[in-house]
Design a protein around this nucleic acid. Structure first.
Lengths: 371, 371
DNA sequence: CTGAAAGCGCTAACAT
DNA sequence: ATGTTAGCGCTTTCAG
């Protein structure tokens, strides 16, 4: 029984107990793939394994890292923790990390350069084997300075022209939204983008504007925003106050789109009759609010970002990847769809435009009388 | 200029460059609080500091930890990463960690016992100085087994009877919701709680039921749910299908409340005329949806959880803490309030019940014509 | 004021 | 099949 209460058992303890050297213990506890398995006699192996189990031995990750100068750890820099987008990306990263017996250390940077540098260095202090940046700024040169260090990295979600990244096909997404509005016969478009340093908003807005201009329609107005509920609402109020009132709004973030819907509703405007709205990320809120939204597999983007990084750590050549996007149509653009929408969010299919499925019947609910 | 491209500089390099021993370098780079500053001659100090700066020296956190058996690191176990609640708690923890020059390592457990154990051990392998569990289960004994290790821990958000924790005043919150409904003249109440192993839902439902029964009203029905949009909607449909249709629903999570609102709306029911709704956590969505919600300072809960843990690490005696809750009233219970609600979420005041402020005028919006 | 020596827990040549 | 030796980068007695 592992009744030890204070000290983690060491290989030395095992060695002493079994009567062998620490080297042997180390070898047994780290079965080397290359050499079959004749590193020790069956008895020794058994004895060591039994002692290890009995003492509750666990590797000291720090000692191993120090010795091997490989920490089996990757750092992940997130702009914020706790929003649907970064959480989904992180989740994919974390899955891959676990599959490879690695640990993902996270840090949030709030998109503040000082904090970002501080946290990056902190990760490096912990000898991370690599870093994934989910908070790249288009205009920054910080990443170049990181490239100076011996630690490889990849970017995810937001791109930077000079580095390997895994992004959504943001330009295509913008075009997809534009085409949908055009198909619906809308003429006066607006797009709520994000800060200029985020490639996501910039690229989406670019694709949106391009497609509309190419269609011979008036160029849409682009609003910068902070990509949250409040700023989405603010942007909408600004639109309402302007002379150029739109009949279609594309918000590059569902949070902002919620702000849009909320303000429109309270101004007595009908969605989609007066204004059609498209959001981004197809969050659970999208389906609850029946919001047409663009879907991208964020989880998989995270996965790929780490997989690329690991490939890079194995000295493979790696290249940027662009992930496909789809449009899930709901009642915020197409009132002919059946109401509801509390079923599971539509799965992305092979086609780029799909209808939301008829909401699934509610599963039988376990009801409990009050105690 | 730090043009090194491959190796982190070590104290040995500095020592060699300056012409002193590593011991001296170490002393200078770790100014000891107790001894004023006469550890080295001013020249040596200057030379070392200059060399360190020039080489871009940084501590090797692993080596330091291994030597001192103090990692300046705490582990945080979250049920999920990426939801508003855990993110807010984590944010408070992270702030305190930074203030103390520590690093917070996170891991998500999805409330799965196997994953939780695995991740906890992984944290211990990294020699964390302490752990904060945000994912306690009421019925588990896993924490007891962790207590066997030499690593101290605290709980946050969810409580466990046997361990120190920082929680919201969940029972009071339930009573607050009940009293508000009672004041509004509602009679047929329901509460959407969470899984039975979460103290949060259990305690809130308990307070809610108690207050209602004490008021001489019929005991509310308690629905278990997964505390997300879909399950909130499912529970609502179950209510609609039952004979006991409520005129007031308390959901112990805003996500579930969104599902409630969504289903009610599509069933053609008016909120709050037909059904009043109260949510929990006062998320940004609350104000966008004009949802009356209970507010608790999650960020501060996180702060306190780590502050208590640090106190514990300094051998101080620590005790559980309960954080106050407030009710922010919006139109989902009180239609007399002005419409809107896109302003900032109401700040909790000293009183326990407050009205949402009149929505702030939208700040001037920076509008950019399309490029 | 400074240095020599020991060692945290572990792995990796290099023996034998 | 196993042990010896050396050392990752750092801190910490203990001597000078």
């Amino acid at each position: 029984m592992p009744t030890r209460i204070n000290q983690r058992p060491t290989q030395r303890q095992i060695a002493a107990q079994v009567g062998v050297s620490v080297t042997t213990v180390s070898r047994i506890l780290n079965p080397d793939e290359s050499h079959p398995e004749r590193w020790a006699s069956p008895e020794t192996v058994a004895a060591i394994q039994q002692a290890a189990a009995q003492l509750g031995y666990r590797h000291n990750a720090l000692a191993v890292s120090l010795r091997t100068s490989r920490s089996q750890t990757v750092g992940v820099l997130l702009p914020v923790v706790g929003d649907f987008v970064t959480a989904s990306i992180y989740s994919g990263i974390d899955d891959v990390a676990r599959e490879h017996g690695m640990t993902a250390l996270t840090a949030s940077t709030l998109d503040e350069p000082v904090l970002r540098a501080e946290r990056t260095f902190s990760l490096l202090d912990h000898l991370v084997d690599g870093i994934i940046f989910a908070d790249a700024h288009l205009d920054e040169d910080f990443l170049d300075s990181v490239a100076t260090q011996a630690v490889p990295f990849t970017l995810v979600h937001r791109r930077h022209p000079d580095h390997v990244c895994v992004t959504a096909d943001d330009v295509a997404a913008g075009r997809l939204a534009a085409q949908h509005f055009i198909d619906l016969g809308r003429r006066r478009m607006a797009v709520i983008s994000g800060p200029r340093f985020m490639s996501t908003g910039v690229d989406r807005a670019q694709g949106f504007v391009d497609a509309i201009v190419e269609a011979g329609l008036p160029a849409p107005t682009v609003f910068d925003s902070a990509l949250n509920v409040k700023s989405g609402g603010d942007a909408t109020r600004a639109m309402l106050a302007s002379s150029h009132f739109p009949d279609a709004i594309f918000a590059v973030h569902d949070g902002a789109a919620l702000g849009v819907l909320s303000v429109l509703r309270h101004e007595g405007l009908s969605v989609p009759d007066d204004v059609a709205v498209i959001g981004f990320y197809d969050t659970p809120m999208s389906s609850a609010m029946e919001l047409t939204s663009i879907n991208v597999d964020l989880n998989n983007m995270g996965r790929r970002a780490l997989e690329l990084l690991l490939a890079r750590l194995s000295d493979q050549q790696i290249e940027s990847e662009v992930c496909p996007v789809t449009l899930t149509v709901r009642r915020s653009t197409d009132p002919s769809l059946p109401p509801g929408g509390h079923g599971p969010t539509a799965e992305p299919l092979t086609s780029t435009v799909q209808r939301a499925p008829h909401p699934a019947e509610s599963s039988p609910q376990h009801v409990n009388p009050a105690p």
